[in-house]
């Protein structure tokens, strides 16, 4: 036996376990995506059990590609992921820089800032859509109502009344509507994941070299220049990590979409899979394969980006 055999032999169980873990679901998905397989059919009961005799070729893929929601779901997946990444990174950097300064009660503020991350996604969605974004009962409705009342009052005021009587009455936005439900999801997930970004950026800021900053101060760098030329490059790597981890998570958003509008006007690929899986497992599996492809494309882009920052 060569001296490599034993290590390989010892690794085998772990490798096999991983292969089974990955390959079995993937192969089953592939298999289902090429056959007719439905959960319930009175007309064609033979389709309710998976079998090679129900072979459909690329029929499921064709069906998915031609379904009216598919392109919309892909666009929407990218819109949601992209917007959340944009929001969390910018807010995360700003908040991390803000609380990196020493101030009384910093410990408590930090704990409070992290807490949204501990809320379950479904609870988060229920809280936001009912208690904050609801146009009647939520904070939004109350705030808009209050604003309208205030303007109403000011319209009778002397001197400035004419100015306020020019103002229109504000309408609260319904975030369950077709056009706005995606924004509701973006807002609530951004709120929930900003703490994650803050946490990562904050630890990174603490490792920033103070002497570099002092050198920059002596070199005449303004606060903005210090941020632009020292802090931001220093945060390059953590930003790449935050973007990558979040992209992986948010491509598979489901609970928020379900709770906000049940997919009305706002579907992503996982949600589409869920809809197909109500009955048509074949189509759901084909969509799943598309989702794998999309995730890989996104991953390649992100790995490139992360790789680039790591190389520097």
């Amino acid at each position: 036996m060569s001296n490599r055999t034993i290590p390989r032999l010892l690794q085998t169980p772990a490798v096999i376990l991983l292969l089974i873990w990955m390959l079995v679901p993937l192969s089953l998905t592939l298999y289902f995506s090429f056959i007719r397989y439905v959960l319930n059919s009175l007309r064609r009961p033979e389709w309710t059990t998976p079998s090679f005799s129900n072979w459909r070729g690329f029929g499921n893929y064709e069906f998915v590609l031609n379904s009216k929601d598919f392109l919309f779901a892909i666009q929407n997946s990218l819109l949601i992921v992209g917007s959340i990444l944009f929001g969390t990174v910018i807010l995360g950097v700003l908040i991390a820089v803000l609380i990196n300064k020493a101030f009384p009660g910093r410990g408590i503020v930090r704990v409070l800032l992290i807490s949204p991350f501990f809320v379950m996604p479904a609870v988060n969605a229920v809280l936001w859509i009912n208690m904050i974004l609801d146009p009647v009962l939520g904070l939004q409705g109350i705030a808009v109502g209050g604003l309208n009342n205030m303007i109403d009052g000011l319209q009778n005021a002397p001197l400035v009344g004419w100015f306020f009587s020019l103002w229109p009455e504000f309408e609260p936005i319904s975030f369950r509507a077709t056009q706005t439900s995606a924004y509701a999801v973006i807002i609530m997930v951004t709120w929930q994941w900003t703490p994650f970004a803050v946490l990562i950026f904050m630890t990174s800021l603490q490792s920033e070299d103070e002497q570099q900053k002092e050198a920059a101060i002596l070199d005449g760098a303004s606060a903005w220049s210090q941020f632009r030329f020292l802090t931001l490059p220093h945060l390059g790597r953590p930003i790449a990590i935050v973007v990558m981890i979040q992209a992986i998570f948010h491509l598979s958003l489901y609970a928020e979409i379900e709770i906000v509008s049940r997919g009305n006007g706002n579907k992503n690929l996982p949600y589409l899979i869920g809809e197909f899986a109500n009955n048509n497992i074949g189509a759901a599996s084909a969509t799943g394969i598309f989702a794998v492809i999309l995730a890989n494309i996104v991953a390649i882009f992100l790995l490139r980006m992360v790789g680039k920052t790591l190389m520097e």
Binding site: D209, Q211, Q212, E214, A215, A216, I217, L218, D219, G220, A221, F229, L230, P233, H234, G236, E312
Partner: peptide, 19 residues
């Protein structure tokens, strides 16, 4: 500090690592 016309060399050199 920047207006005092002094230059400082630090123990850790304090070079800007990304430049």
């Amino acid at each position: 500090p920047s207006k005092r016309g002094l230059a400082m060399v630090f123990q850790s050199y304090a070079l800007y690592p990304h430049m």
